[in-house]
Amino acid sequence: MTEPSAVPADPTNTDAAELTVDDLTVRFEGLAAISGVSLTVERHEVFGLIGPNGAGKTTLVNCLTGFQAPTGGRVLVGRESTVGWSPMQFREMGVARTFQAGRLFKDMSVLENVEVTAVGLGLGRRRAVERGRAILDWVGLAGKTSLRAGALAYTDQRRLAIARAMVLPPAFVLLDEPAAGMSDAECEGLMVLVSSIPRTFVCGVLLIEHNMRVVMGVSHRVHVLDGGKTLAEGTPAEIQRDQAVLAAYLGVEG
């Protein structure tokens, strides 16, 4: 796998240096999905977020992108409060995401999929197409721009989802299980791509992933959630030695 090619970086709408979650709580009808979680993603790093199913990872991402209003606590982009922001506002202010289920615009072409984001953020059609082509080149889909998105192979769909989030580079990108269902070889390619994001785009990455090799391989720091609460945070090496994590998450008796 070669190093991804360089992409001209546009200035984003924010010069925020970090994305902050402060004492966040989300309750669904009294049931706490997340309680008192705090974390900070910096713009120059890949920040891993792990935890067993139902730990609240996707709920957290939804709070960070305007799809879910927190019950308590704050989400800050830089120093700016995000109370009442719509998903569109989050994207306009430089927080992008992908979805576990992919959620591509399946019946539109590959190029159109990325064009939508660029046009949605206010670019003219011609420039949107230029930017779209550049970003598709970066994820390795340059030869497939006119295919129907739904006709792409599974891994290519995952790459397209990342491209769609990265066109007009955001300040932060939240990747929700990008490696799900990928083979080891395909994971290698994905890891190269993800770890190049902070350098290439000056964009912080919040990576949710079950594949430990991927998370531990690309993250600078890792945050562990369990049952909606923070279990641990540290470098991959620290997390892999953490007794509480091993016990609760990896199912190893302490």
């Binding site: 719509s86 939508v116 984001t117 949605g120």
Partner: peptide, 11 residues
Amino acid sequence: EDGVAAKASGV
């Protein structure tokens, strides 16, 4: 095609 993804794309 996908209302949720469209929102995430700023639409």
